[in-house]
């Protein structure tokens, strides 16, 4: 049901300024003394020294997962590149030669670039990956760098990044 919000009467309490100022100072000074004398109750943190733990679902910088032998999980299927709304992923596919132990997966990313400056961290690439090769569970955010190329992440760097627990492997059970 609709109800009409209150509008205070303007009597001497409000019109004389002082009582309400004192009441307001009661609120602000309560905070002041709690923070100065009592337990510090600040919301902000001293950032680089104190770091807030990111929740498990936090979408941070990307990583490429590895197979047991350390080769990339990625099969260069281009799903993530297609799904990316920011067009920040660039893949050049290569194929394993015959006789290679991994010849059964046929393709691998010869080059895999992610422009972390262009990325909008929407997570659509992770969702689009059919073999759990790309993940954003690193718990790292894009930190400031001195030059643009420093945030152009290439294949081997992406492969070396671990998840928040230090793991490089994947949940994909297929053909380990």
């Amino acid at each position: 049901m609709p109800y009409v919000v209150k509008r205070p009467e303007r009597d001497i309490w409000e019109q004389s300024y002082i009582p309400e100022t004192v009441r307001g100072m009661g609120v602000t000074l309560r905070h002041f003394f709690r923070n100065v004398i009592g337990r510090r109750d600040t919301v902000t943190i001293l950032y680089p020294e104190v770091q807030r733990p990111y929740p498990p679902r936090f979408r941070g910088l990307h990583r490429l997962t590895q197979r047991d032998d350390g080769s990339p999980r990625c099969t260069a299927c281009m799903c993530c590149q297609t799904a990316c709304p920011a067009e920040c992923i660039h893949i050049v596919a290569g194929s394993y030669p015959d006789g290679h132990p991994l010849a059964f997966v046929e393709k691998y990313p010869a080059e895999f670039w992610i422009d972390e400056l262009r990325c909008v961290f929407c997570g659509l690439c992770v969702e689009a990956c059919p073999c759990d090769a790309i993940r954003m569970d690193t718990g790292l955010h894009a930190r400031p760098v001195e030059a643009r190329p420093h945030l152009m992440y290439e294949r081997n760097l992406l492969l070396s990044i671990t998840d928040a627990k230090g793991d490089v492997l994947t949940a994909n059970p297929r053909k380990k």
Binding site: P8, W13, E14, Q15, S16, Y17, E20, R23, V27
Partner: peptide
């Protein structure tokens, strides 16, 4: 609300 709503300056 305590700080503003009945404060004459804000009103």
């Amino acid at each position: 609300e305590q700080l503003l709503l009945r404060n004459r300056i804000f009103m």
